[in-house]
Design a protein around this nucleic acid. Sequence first.
DNA 1: GTCTATATCCCGATAGAC
DNA 2: GTCTATCGGGATATAGAC
Lengths: 202, 202
Amino acid sequence: MPAKGARYHHGDLRPAMVDAAVDVIAERGVRDFSMAEASRRLGVTTAAPYRHFADRDELLAAVAVRGLSVFAAMLSAAADGASAPDQRLAAMAGAYVRFAATQRPLFAALFSSGLDKSRHPELQRAWEPVDALLTTAVLEVCQGDEGAADALGDAIEATAHGYAMLLTDGEYGDGQIAVDATADRAIASARALIAGRAALPS
Amino acid sequence: MPAKGARYHHGDLRPAMVDAAVDVIAERGVRDFSMAEASRRLGVTTAAPYRHFADRDELLAAVAVRGLSVFAAMLSAAADGASAPDQRLAAMAGAYVRFAATQRPLFAALFSSGLDKSRHPELQRAWEPVDALLTTAVLEVCQGDEGAADALGDAIEATAHGYAMLLTDGEYGDGQIAVDATADRAIASARALIAGRAALPS
DNA sequence: GTCTATATCCCGATAGAC
DNA sequence: GTCTATCGGGATATAGAC
């Protein structure tokens, strides 16, 4: 905080805007997030951010990119906590739900922002580690059968995503109990999908 | 269309607004839906709708209510097309995805509008037939075991919902092929969950 | 039941000074 | 790299006339 004059110069506005955006999304939701509000919280003019972000979507994309690194870390940590391939994969489904619940603004930036991924190459690149973690885990379970792994991977992703969306929509109630219960259900569902995967196409 | 003067009197604005809202949502998405735009399409002032809807959310809720009747009809039709309980339940998962894909604006009003269900009792009531259809189908599969039915029902709902959301987000591409493939995957996943349901809590 | 008119507010984005 | 100032647009919602 440079104590120069009454005027505020930030000095490192870009990352600060990402932080502020996360806060605004947390309080208002992605759909009501605005550059103007985020700027105000930093004590900066609404014009300032445009030196760092071409437009609103680019700031949202930066939030999403940060989200993906957190997401990848949580998935990775969950996988490391399990030994058998089946357990690893199931644990990742649980981590998916926990990411959504504990990092709501980041999850929202990723899945409810209406961002067109194809217009943001950095975002596409940021997905790669996450995709790789899931692909690796599911391939282990399927022992290299790529067709089977594809179907099982999509099924588990969809299930985890569904639980995550319904949870963040309040469908299962609020609070830590709902989060824990939903994560457990996602884990159990992943196990059920693995057990019943003969019914999936390959 | 009363050919009175240059002035437009609608006469049946309430349902017409719901139609117009669906169109606007289809083109702009729920988040960018506005009363003003819907009014314009009907050739009516932006003030007129407020005789019929207290506010924007009430119009959105009316769209959602209409959506639920279509949803229930599609789920019911899918169930009727299958004989065995397992097949019925799996078919409903497919119908869930098809509803999302073919009735995007209605699906969006239901799940991406940010509507607080508890503030709209009509909406809560409109959910009942849908819930009943799913509950009945899953109870048949579980032969009356309510605990098991609850877990399996949630799992299948979450899976169908996840596929539906990812499909409408463009994750699987556009077009009829993607819709068909995703519906098939939802059906197969439901079968896998049924087959592996021993892994679910009861 | 709809219209005219209006109050109020917020947003994204740009130009040009410092 | 941030500020001042501003343009142009759109939204919700209300008051009062017809």
